[in-house]
Amino acid sequence: MNQEIRDGLRAAVPVIISAAPFGVLFGALAVDNGLSVFEAVTMSATVFAGASQMVGIELFGQSIAPWLIVFSVFAVNFRHVLYSAAIGRRMVSFTPLQKGLSFFLLTDPQFAIAEARYEAGHRLTFRWYATSGLALYVFWIAETWLGALFGRLLPDSHALGLDFLLTIYFLGLVMSFRKRALWLPVVLASSVASIIAFNVVGSPWHVSLGALAGILVAAAAPLEGVREDEANEGRADA
């Protein structure tokens, strides 16, 4: 098997394991909120963004204007604008069609493993990206379908730690970036800001507001880490 494909599958495995409970949970909750199995699976296959899908089905259960549901999904997913801008710079060898497919597959964990791949010194190839992305996609749809069919049979999810697995996974990814410039100040700023936002403004805004705090710290920090010629080049064009 091609090395890029093998690496893509390997990167996808821990994500698939940790996201599986959420896919099943989404399917079960969707049917519980009045969606048909077909609608639940269609939502996973077209939106493919777990947190916003949960918000969406929550609103389907209430009598809310259709455009407001679409807007809520948009708001929850707004953080993807940042992922897109960041990871788009690594897609230099992608054709426009490949970019289109890649952006469709740009979930939180996909962004994280792709950045981690680049961080580890690899060139980001479409073959690697499509392999990991489509693996996550296929499992997400299958889990939704399973959840929608068998949702009521779930075991005690709390004892199995299912609700907290993604948090552990995301912590591991945060740690994998610790060699980057300004990592500690960024993590500290985002931690404090997200905790405050979570308790004051509420979810999902803690993601955008917390991330903004860390990004501003990085952008405002002295440009010592940047090579002098790069900095000058940037200023000349800005």
Partner: peptide, 17 residues
């Protein structure tokens, strides 16, 4: 510099709260 901080910043906001 801001874009390079995006992954750690975003993922931190999911873990910290």
């Amino acid at each position: 510099a801001g874009l390079n901080a995006v992954p750690a910043a975003v993922l931190t906001t999911i873990v910290a709260p």
